[in-house]
Amino acid sequence: MSVAAWDRFLQEQDSWPAASRVNDSTSYGTQARNALAGKTFEKKKRMSQEERHLQILQAAVKIIAIKGFWGMSLQDISDELGITEAALYHYISSKDDLLNMVLSECYDTPDADEYNAVTAGVNDADGHRVYFYPRYCLNIALYNLQRPELVQLYSVLNGEALSPEHPAHSFFIGRHMRNWEMICSMNWALPEHVDEDRFYDLYTLAMSAMDGLQYRWLGDDSMNLLEEWISISDIIFPPSEWAGYTDPSEYESSDAGCLLPLTLAARQ
């Protein structure tokens, strides 16, 4: 990708969390990424309700990411926390209740939405906030590099939830359209040939490619997720068509005036 603003992400790989970095070993054997290394829980004599709630969520992420929902038991969670299963029931009502907590609080969060959007947008000369979709997708990759254990959790549950009997089936089946509704609420600068139907197809392609790359990244410790995503971006968003619509930096330092004529909303 020819966007200069993206080069620094490749040059700052030493700042990534250890579990997200590419293995520099000279061995060429495929090794699964250890997304959950070093997870321990400090035992405290007294915890606030909020502290215990967070600790339970952290333990659930770890156990479900390894065993899946079907393979996980509440005894596994209580063992991880160093409490009795009876004590765990003071904070949750059932195994399904624990899964709902994980789904609602751990992956698709306001913090994730803010991270993905904040540096994908720019305020134009008239004060309009306009977003650039290729940079938004890059931000998803950057954010997920910081949370490999949650990406593993998502991947395991997404596979399990293909079964209609899984309690997360509706959540994952509906997730694509829920996120699309959020995307539609944002003001995107898009090339003239991209109408709403085309944008939906691009959104579907980009998110499907992201999911596929993340599966490979979790399974192969030698893979560089960020480099792979930037390379694929050239195919999904060809520079010949997307020049000027890729990153806010293309407008931040210029006197571009009002950007609304470049947006999908203005053309509809």
Results as ranks from 00 to 15, higher is better:
Ser2His: 05
Arg8Ile: 12
Arg8Glu: 07
Gln13Cys: 11
Gln13Glu: 15
Asp14Val: 10
Pro17Tyr: 06
Pro17His: 08
Pro17Gln: 07
Asn23Ile: 11
Ser25Cys: 15
Thr30Val: 15
Leu36Met: 06
Gly38Glu: 09
Phe41Asn: 02
Phe41Asp: 05
Lys44His: 14
Glu50Cys: 02
Glu50Trp: 02
Arg52Leu: 13
His53Arg: 15
Leu54Arg: 12
Leu54Cys: 01
Gln55Phe: 01
Gln55Gly: 09
Gln58Arg: 11
Gln58Tyr: 02
Ile63Ser: 04
Gly68Met: 05
Ile83Met: 13
Leu88Gln: 06
Tyr91Thr: 10
Ile92Met: 04
Ser93Pro: 00
Leu99Ile: 10
Pro110Lys: 08
Asp113Leu: 10
Asp113Met: 12
Tyr115Thr: 09
Tyr115Gln: 09
Val118Asn: 13
Arg129Gln: 14
Arg129Thr: 07
Val130Gly: 03
Ala141Arg: 05
Leu142Asp: 03
Gln146Pro: 04
Arg147Leu: 09
Arg147Gln: 10
Val156Met: 04
Pro167Leu: 03
Ala168Gly: 03
Ile173Phe: 08
Gly174Phe: 03
Gly174Ser: 10
Arg178Ser: 14
Glu181Ile: 12
Cys184Ile: 04
Ser185Ala: 15
Ser185Val: 05
Asn187Val: 02
Trp188Pro: 05
Trp188Ile: 07
His193Ile: 07
Val194Tyr: 03
Glu196Lys: 14
Asp197Pro: 01
Phe199Gly: 08
Tyr200His: 10
Leu202Trp: 02
Ser208Pro: 00
Asp211Phe: 11
Asp211Gln: 11
Gly212Gln: 08
Leu218Thr: 11
Met223Thr: 10
Leu226Tyr: 05
Glu227Gln: 14
Trp229Val: 05
Ile230Thr: 07
Ile232Phe: 06
Ile235Gly: 00
Ile235Ala: 11
Trp242Ser: 06
Trp242Glu: 09
Tyr245Gln: 03
Asp247Trp: 00
Asp247Glu: 08
Pro248Phe: 04
Gly257Thr: 05
Cys258Asn: 15
Pro261Ile: 04
Leu262Tyr: 07
Leu262Met: 13
Ala265Val: 08
Arg267Met: 11
Gln268Lys: 15
